[in-house]
Design a protein around this nucleic acid. Structure first.
Lengths: 237, 237
DNA sequence: GCGCTTATGTCAACAGCATTGACGCAAGCC
DNA sequence: GGCTTGCGTCAATGCTGTTGACATAAGCGC
C-alpha cells in the first residue's frame, strides 16, 4: 500500500477534517505534549490522531511506523536537552553539564526516554551531541580511538541511568510508590540471620530508592576516573 | 472477580485441559523459555496460556497482573545470574564478577531485562544480591551509609548498561542492524565543516556501536574510582 | 466413603492497540 | 481547464490485557 512511502518533501498540503495542516514537526510536537500531559501510555496512534484532529492512519503518511516516529521524537528530545549548551574550557565541567542536561531532560519526558534511550536516531541533534562530547574528550588529551571509546562509556552510563530513572518515573504511580517503599519496608523485615549485611545497614536502605542521587554519585565517580586517566597536557598549550 | 486473589499457598491442584498442573514456578519457567525462543514480543498472556496448555486467564489465578508476573520472572533472572557466586577476599574482583554476571545474564534474556531492569522485585534473589553487594563494599571499608550509596551507584550503573545493551539486543534484527550500521555509515557522511570532531574520529566511530565494550570500560572506570575512594584498611585486620 | 465448600480452570466478551488496502477529494502542474 | 497523484479517510484485521460468570472436581469434616 501507499502508507509505507514517506516522501522527504511534500508538496500538496491538504488540511485535515479538523482543519489542521499536518507536518512531521507538528506530529512530533503533539506526540511530546501528549505524553507530557496524559502520561506514559498516552502515545498511541489513535490518541495522536485525535489530538491532531485527523484520522490515525494519516500519521503513517509521515512516518513508516511508530518506531520511526519514536526516533524522531527522541531526536527532538536530544535537541531540547542540549539547546544552548556551550561548553567552556573545563572539559570535566562540560561533560558534567552535558550529563545533567540529558538526565534532566529525559526525566522530564520519562516515557519517551524509556522507549528511546537506547536507540540511534541518526538525526541532526544526535550528531551534534556526539560531536560535542567527543570534542570535549579530545580536548582532554585522549587520542581518536580513546576519545570515541571513552565517550561511548560516558554516554552509555548517562543514558543507562537516565533510562532507568525515567522508566521508574514512567511507572504507574502506585507501582512507583510500591517500588520506592520497598526499600524501607520489605527490606526492613528480611530475616537478620539470612541477610546480615542488609540488617547491618537497614537504617540506610531508603538511600537505595530512586531519587537519592545514585546517578550523581556514579557520574562523579566516572568523571573522577576520566580525569585521572586523561593524558597530561603537553607544553604546547 | 476472583482473579485478583492470589493465595500464597494452594491446596487444590486441578490439572488443566492439557493435563498440566500449574504452579507459579512452571509459569515463570514457560514465560522465560517463551521469550527465549520466540523473541521480544512473545510474552503475552494468550501465548503463555497456549504454551502452558491452559486458558490464558488461568494465569491470573497465580499472578495479579502481567506486571506481577514480570517481577517474578525478573527475580528468577537475578537468581540465575548469581547462582553459585561466592566472592573471595578481593572485593573489587567480587564486584567485577557480580557486574559481569548480571550483565551477561541480562543479555541472555534481553526482553525480560529491558522490561524489568528498573524494577524492585522485593523477592528472595534480589535480597540476596543486595546483601552480597553491600557486604563487599563494607568489606572495602565503607561505612553503612557510604556502602549503601555506593552500592546504589554501582548497581544502577551495571543495570543501566545491561538494560541499554539488552534493549538494543531485543530490537527486531533489521532495526538492530540499522542502528549498528548507523555509526559506520550515517556518521561517515556528516558534513565535515558542521561536525569537525566527528570528521576527525570518523575511522573510529564503529567503536560506538553496541558490542564494542562500552560496558566493560565504564565498569573498570567505576571500579577504579571506588578503589581510589575506599577508606584505607585499619591495622585491626 | 459421602457430601459440601470453594478453589481453580474455562468461556465469552470488552475495549484498545498497530497496521493496511481501497477509496476519493482536491492541490498543483502543464 | 483538465489530469495526475499526494494524502486524508474509512473500514477491517488480528493482536493485546483483563474480568465476570460459570462449571467442575479437590479435599476437608464427618
Amino acid at each position: 500500500m501507499a502508507e509505507g512511502r514517506v516522501p522527504a518533501e511534500r508538496r500538496r498540503r491538504r488540511p485535515t477534517k479538523g482543519g489542521v495542516v499536518l507536518s512531521t514537526e507538528l506530529i512530533v510536537d503533539r506526540a511530546l505534549s501528549l505524553v507530557g500531559q496524559h502520561g506514559p501510555d498516552a502515545l498511541s496512534v489513535r490518541r495522536l490522531g485525535a489530538a491532531l484532529g485527523c484520522d490515525p492512519s494519516a500519521v503513517y503518511r509521515y512516518f513508516h511506523s511508530t518506531d520511526d516516529l519514536l526516533l524522531a521524537v527522541a531526536d527532538r528530545l536530544i535537541g531540547e536537552s542540549l539547546d544552548g549548551f556551550a561548553p567552556g574550557d573545563d572539559w570535566v565541567a562540560g561533560l558534567r553539564e552535558m550529563a545533567h542536561r540529558i538526565h534532566r531532560c529525559y526525566l522530564a519526558h520519562p516515557r519517551i526516554a524509556a522507549l528511546a534511550a537506547y536507540r540511534v536516531t541518526r538525526r541532526a541533534h544526535e550528531f551534534r551531541a556526539v560531536d560535542t562530547g567527543i570534542g570535549l574528550l579530545r580536548r582532554a588529551g585522549f587520542d581518536e580511538a580513546a576519545a570515541v571509546r571513552h565517550y561511548a562509556a560516558f554516554v552509555d552510563t548517562v543514558l543507562g541511568h537516565a533510562a532507568l530513572d525515567a522508566a521508574h518515573l514512567a511507572l504507574a504511580p502506585e507501582r512507583r510508590a510500591a517500588d520506592d517503599a520497598a526499600w524501607a519496608e520489605a527490606y526492613r523485615s528480611v530475616p537478620v540471620e539470612e541477610y546480615p549485611q542488609l540488617a547491618a545497614v537497614r537504617d540506610e536502605l531508603p538511600l537505595m530508592a530512586s531519587g537519592y542521587g545514585s546517578f550523581e554519585l556514579a557520574l562523579e565517580l566516572l568523571l573522577g576516573a576520566l580525569e585521572a586517566k586523561a593524558p597530561p597536557p603537553t607544553n604546547s598549550r
